[in-house]
Design a protein around this nucleic acid. Structure first.
Lengths: 193, 193
DNA sequence: TATTATCTACTGGTCTGACCACTCTAAAAA
DNA sequence: TTTTTAGAGTGGTCAGACCAGTAGATAATA
């Protein structure tokens, strides 16, 4: 268990909260303009430098965009950008490296189950259309993407991509799952022709 | 002395690069101390405020930790906590929300299944020990953490934390899953006493 | 001597006010 | 009308200041 010590909030963290308020109260949408730094400073009774410290933080996360001489704008986010960032930290932790393999398998189990439920027929036709050898040649990733395409959950897809890519980067093994079994589970013939 | 080295890159971004150098050249490890803000400012020929803008950015990312009167330190790794703050900025479109919701449920299904397999007895005793009301009071997160603790897959745990934190930040509902059902699935009595 | 209290130098946290570079817009000039 | 220009506003950066907290050296104490 981690011990998270102090909890004295710093002034710039209020900036983050305040900006959330701006977004909510003013119903700001991506691309919209935020109040100027000087305005925020006055309204929050903070110095402009403190305001800026808060802005820089969320700018690095890709949530806002600053244009000199123009203003600060909400960005059309890419929420996955943040997920990628977090993934960076997750993978940075060496302890979790060992878990990548396990977790990848788990995630794939989920994906395969969903594939059966939501688009078994489509997957079957797609795979059968080209034949087993075709997908065998195109590789594990392409094959799996067929399932992912019918599930239509971009977040789950992103998680799988991250895990899979990371797995490949730290392991020698090419396939963690028998593609043949995968095909057969969807009722696709795998006999070579 | 004018600065602003022509290109579009902002000065504070150099701070990030420089800190990477510090880490690499000085072979800094988690917990180690970085040069003081004033030192960095002098060495990079930047003002202290600019240095601080860079520091705040990577602080929010959880890379560093600042202690007033002491210094700035490299951090082991980041928890989901700070990022959950930002989740409020990220999710606005319905589609993304649905993705988070769906994915969270999926991940939890996996976790619950694994809980049954790897530590059903432990979970049961843990929950029974304090009684249903205790966990009901402590909340969904604490209850779920019992399952996570026996699974012992930190990556899966972190993914769940991330999704759960995101979920809370975008929804009002406290419980997405009937805790009562969860208890009963592990054979724990839920009758009030 | 061993302990405690105090001082001091240094650190991050914040503020003020300034100047620059840039972008927009509206008034002035063509 | 179109073009030019001047100004106001914005972010980018800076220097210097003061506060608040920490750690280590020093002095005072038991």
């Amino acid at each position: 268990m981690l011990t998270r010590s102090n909890s004295n909030t710093k002034a710039y963290q209020n900036v983050l909260e305040k900006i959330k308020d701006y977004i909510q109260i003013d119903q700001l949408k991506p691309g919209d303009k935020l109040p100027s730094e000087r305005e925020m400073a006055e309204e929050l009774h903070l110095s402009r430098s403190t305001i800026r410290e808060g802005l820089r933080a969320i700018e690095l996360l890709g949530l806002i965009e600053t244009r000199q001489g123009d203003g600060t704008f909400l960005r059309p986010y890419q929420s996955y950008q943040t997920l990628s960032l977090l993934a960076g930290f997750i993978f940075q932790d060496r302890e979790t490296k060992d878990n990548v393999d396990d977790t990848l398998v788990m995630i794939e189990d989920v994906i395969i189950d969903l594939g059966h439920i939501r688009g078994s027929a489509y997957i079957q036709s797609k795979w059968s259309g080209h034949g087993y050898d075709y997908w065998k040649k195109r590789g594990y990733k392409a094959t799996f993407e067929v399932i992912l395409s019918v599930i239509d959950n971009q977040l789950l897809e992103k998680i799988w991509y991250l895990l899979y890519a990371f797995y490949l980067s730290i392991e020698d093994k090419q396939h963690i799952r028998k593609v043949k079994d995968l095909f057969q589970s969807f009722g696709v013939q795998t006999t070579e022709e």
